[in-house]
């Protein structure tokens, strides 16, 4: 049953053109600039970390992941492919990252054959791929939404995500405890509004 739901949702998420997964992404819709560089910068800003962390699932060295994703952007620049919408762009980015990881693992002379074959199995599994992408997308879009918060609110949310208590935050930032509470609840309101039904996640994350 789990699998059915996944397939169905993934279809909707990735194939439905009118589906605006999250509101925070509207900016990217205007990616199209007559200069490739501007468009690429927007895509880079939105996806770079997510792709690096996605690669990091398979390749333990973060430097290697960064190099690999940078390669991907250099490719994008040179080949300048056409994407009818953001969904195809998204699929392209994650798939290319997956392929690059695959190549790295295949060509590496790692002694641990078992680990290699494990990684390859995971990489080749399409259901897992979509699960991973969805997870990365949740993280990415949450991060994006947090980044869009006003400075003070952003600071408080980030500290709270790190596990700091309201009291500790108020001491570090040298503001009243009540102010921390107010700012925090205002931030949640903003995030919730942005994520609508994703609030379940936020509920667990931020409560």
């Amino acid at each position: 049953m789990m699998k059915d739901i996944n397939a169905h949702i993934i279809n909707l998420l990735f194939l439905h053109p009118d589906m605006n997964f999250l509101k925070g992404n509207k900016k990217l819709k205007s990616v199209s600039s007559s200069s490739i560089k501007d468009g690429l910068k927007n895509v880079f800003d939105a996806y770079y970390e997510a792709l690096v962390l996605y690669a990091n699932r398979f390749l333990p060295a973060i430097d290697e992941c960064e190099d690999l994703v940078q390669d991907l952007f250099v490719d994008l620049w040179e080949k300048d492919p056409f994407f009818p919408d953001e969904i195809s762009l998204k699929i392209f980015l994650y798939k290319s990252t997956r392929n690059k990881c695959f190549n790295v693992i295949k060509h590496s002379k790692v002694k641990d054959k078992y680990a290699t074959s494990q990684s390859i199995n995971i990489l080749e599994d399409d259901t897992l791929f979509l699960e991973h992408v969805l997870e990365e997308e949740i993280v990415r879009q949450l991060h994006q939404a947090i980044e869009l918060l006003p400075d003070r609110k952003k600071e408080i949310i980030k500290m709270s995500l790190k596990g700091l208590k309201n009291q500790e935050i108020s001491e570090i930032l040298n503001i009243k405890l009540q102010t921390v509470k107010t700012l925090k609840s205002q931030s949640y309101a903003i995030l919730r509004q942005q994520f609508q039904d994703m609030d379940i996640i936020l509920y667990f994350l931020l409560s």
């Binding site: 819709k29 199209s32 600039s33 007559s34 490739i36 501007d38 468009g39 300048d80 492919p81 919408d85």
Partner: peptide, 15 residues
Amino acid sequence: WYKYAAAASLVLLFS
């Protein structure tokens, strides 16, 4: 032959 973001090319800054 590649095209980039022709879909809604409204930004005509350098055009």
